[in-house]
């Protein structure tokens, strides 16, 4: 089992494609940081216009904590693509390359192969999020310094003291790992269906985009189905930056994501176990 995982990780991290994701995360982060360095004041004034009329807020508003939040907010929607790049490729890519054929003539149970593919994708996801934490949070702190964090919600202005922020980020990143793992498991299922990796990657992105739109539409019809969409729960990490933290809601969101993940994974194992390898 360990050997199988070792091989899976070896394959993932020997491929140039794997590092594209890390490059993309770094690049987007840099761009946002650069934009904030040059035009951050204007952004803050715009964002704070509602509060600024009555309160005079001074100090390092545009600090690393806020920048990291802004980066996460805009980047986490796109991370599924990067996760799909590996998870969507996991089975379909091997089918396409023909290596699945050889792999399955080795004495390995198919469910183990699926579990290893999932674990490999999970570890990749964790590393991607850790890398995101490094560039989005720690690099931002280095560039913009520390400070109290403000979080602008549509109905509230939340301020978090600077020595009260780090643990929230730790939990938020942990939650992001969970959300992205759900994506990985979905991508893996799509990957089992396909014989080339482009399909699952695009399908993953399409599903995420469509469901995210549904999750954000304020229409009565969608309000009913909203709680059942995993995309609704993927942004629960933001809850950790609220006051008070809605632990109950976050917990429920986490549960929904875990159920989805297990469901996707079970479906993958079930389907892959009876799949004819014809490629």
């Amino acid at each position: 089992m360990i050997q199988l995982l070792h091989i899976e990780l070896f394959k993932i991290f020997k491929r140039p494609r794997t590092y594209i994701s890390f490059g993309i995360v770094t690049a987007i982060t840099f761009v946002i940081q650069l934009a904030m360095l040059t035009d951050g004041k204007g952004f803050v004034n715009f964002a704070l216009s509602g509060v600024n009329e009555q309160f005079d807020i001074q100090g390092n508003i545009l600090n690393g904590y806020l920048i990291a939040y802004i980066i996460l907010q805009s980047l986490l929607i796109h991370i599924p693509l990067l996760v799909a790049l590996v998870a969507g490729d996991a089975l379909a890519g091997e089918a396409n390359a023909g290596t699945l054929r050889l792999l399955l003539t080795k004495p390995i149970a198919r469910y183990k192969l699926v579990l290893m593919k999932f674990t490999g994708a999970f570890i990749y996801t964790v590393l991607l999020i850790v890398w995101l934490a490094v560039v989005a949070l720690f690099l931002s702190l280095l560039l913009f310094g520390k400070g109290d964090m403000i979080n602008l919600k549509s109905e509230a202005f939340v301020m978090i003291l600077q020595d009260d922020v780090m643990w929230r980020y730790a939990l938020a990143f942990a939650f992001a790992v969970l959300a992205m793992t759900t994506i990985a498991s979905m991508s893996l299922l799509l990957s089992a269906f396909a014989d080339n990796s482009i399909g699952p990657i695009i399908a993953t992105m399409g599903i995420v985009v469509v469901l995210t739109i549904l999750s954000n539409l304020e229409l009565p019809l969608f309000t009913i189905i909203k709680p059942y969409l995993f995309t609704t729960h993927m942004i629960a990490w933001k809850g950790f930056f609220d006051a008070p933290i809605p632990y109950y809601a976050i917990g429920r969101s986490a549960l929904v994501l875990v159920i989805y993940t297990i469901g996707f994974l079970a479906a993958t194992v079930w389907y892959f176990n009876k799949k004819d390898i014809k490629s």
């Binding site: 020997k14 390359a97 023909g98 290596t99 050889l102």
Partner: peptide, 22 residues
């Protein structure tokens, strides 16, 4: 089975070693 498809981004040795382990 038909074509000898292996991992193009790995060396022959790495491919061999990997499948040997499996």
């Amino acid at each position: 089975i038909e074509r000898p498809d292996m991992y193009g981004y790995l060396t022959g040795w790495e491919n061999l070693k990997m499948f040997a382990t499996l």
